[in-house]
Amino acid sequence: MTIGIDKIGFYTPHLYVDMNDLAEARDVDPGKFTIGIGQEKMAVAPLTQDPVTLAANAAWEIIDDQDRDAIDFVIFATESGIDHSKSAAIYVHQLLGLKSGARCIEVKQACYGATAAIQMAKGHVALHPESKVLVLGSDIARYGLNTGGEVTQGAGAVALLIGQDPRIMTLEEPSVYATEDIMDFWRPVYSEMAFVDGKFSNEQYLAFFNRVWEQYKSESGLALKDFAAICFHLPYTKMGLKALRTILDEGDEAVQERLKANFQMSQHYNRNVGNIYTGSLYLSLLSLLELQDELKAGDRIGLYSYGSGAVGEFFSGILQPDYKQHLHVQDHKAMLNSREALTVAEYEDIFKSTLPTDGTTVELDVEQDPAPIVLASLADHKRQYLSR
């Protein structure tokens, strides 16, 4: 039995700020953001979008009635949770109309969470071959206005349906991983903003990549030449390129050119959405699959996942026949092209706007949000969602 990605969906809010405009407002050379960091646009979430709605919207486009009957496990990976107790997966379960006979949990380990969820899903499907697992990676990255991390913010979600005989990509063994207790990025429970030691985090990202890559080669017997592409967790797109460059000399010129060209395809969506934490690696994979027409069935794609704190993992997948027919290329193109540009002042106003934390009732203006699923109101400390 083969297990892997049967469907994949993606959602990002309808608002963004252009990095050239942000650079001008921050009195920074635009090239520092667009070239040095590698970001063009940053998705901005209005109050009507939170991690639950982002995930539900991402899953909405891929789930059909047959899936609703088969899904018996929903795993929601996030580091932007809305409740210390209740799983965000339960809200999505209800919004999607999934059957009651399902497990719903939330998992957390910085940006690595969705990869942990996928590996957990593989084990579940191995034990229950007729089941499907819905994995959600959904986050809103916030570092604060006028901070070093501001340019690496973003918002969005990726939904993956994991099952047997997948139509997009089978997931291979081995999967190699490593953990070390470090403080490169963290967000205490009392803080709305994350803290990051940027230089240290970059160093650890690269160190973990090289550690798991070497171990992966040893355990798998594979080499750089065996990969059509390698996708990376992209807190910003230049970070993945730095990691790729550390191993390029292991391949000949043709291999190097192939991997560099495919990396450029894999970073396009991230470059125009920003950092979505748990979903970033899989947004990169989606960008590659939807934009690169030269990939073919049987191609091996490497996947590097990193979550600060820190856990790193490297694994791979094999593209399936006609995989492209099961993607939503035009829908995603239309979604990205229809977004509205904000001025920096408008972006700052949205960033500063917050939901009440004292139980105050508030009705949100959902008419300004074109998403199928929105956060409509808060009352008695409860969030009320609307599926249109």
Rank of each mutant, 00 (worst) to 15 (best):
V135N: 00
G81F: 08
F10S: 04
N270T: 11
E363W: 15
R68W: 10
Y236V: 11
S85V: 10
V344T: 13
V374N: 12
G221T: 14
T147V: 05
V52L: 04
V151M: 05
I230M: 11
M265G: 02
E346S: 13
L96F: 05
D21P: 01
D184M: 09
K99Q: 15
I63C: 03
T34G: 08
D21Y: 01
Q39K: 12
Y216M: 06
G317C: 08
Y304W: 10
Y11D: 06
Q267M: 14
L136K: 00
F195T: 12
A310R: 10
T246Y: 05
P46Y: 09
L206A: 08
G149I: 03
L98H: 02
D65I: 14
A341H: 10
P30S: 06
A157L: 11
Y143I: 03
F314H: 07
Q94I: 05
L303N: 02
L95E: 06
T360S: 14
D64G: 09
K324S: 15
D299S: 09
L375Q: 12
A121R: 00
I63W: 02
Q320S: 08
D331C: 15
K41V: 01
M19I: 02
A207M: 07
N275I: 12
R68A: 13
E61V: 10
K225M: 09
L303R: 02
I168C: 00
D299T: 12
T147K: 05
M239H: 04
L259Y: 00
D358W: 09
D197C: 04
W186R: 09
A254F: 04
A55T: 05
L134G: 01
K260P: 00
E192T: 04
A126Q: 15
V151Q: 03
I168L: 06
G81Y: 08
G101L: 08
Y11M: 08
Q215M: 13
I63S: 02
S175W: 03
L160T: 01
M169D: 00
P370E: 06
V107F: 02
D27P: 02
L244K: 04
V17L: 11
L283Q: 10
G101A: 09
S266W: 03
S175V: 07
A117P: 01
Q66K: 15
T179C: 11
N337S: 12
I140N: 00
K7D: 13
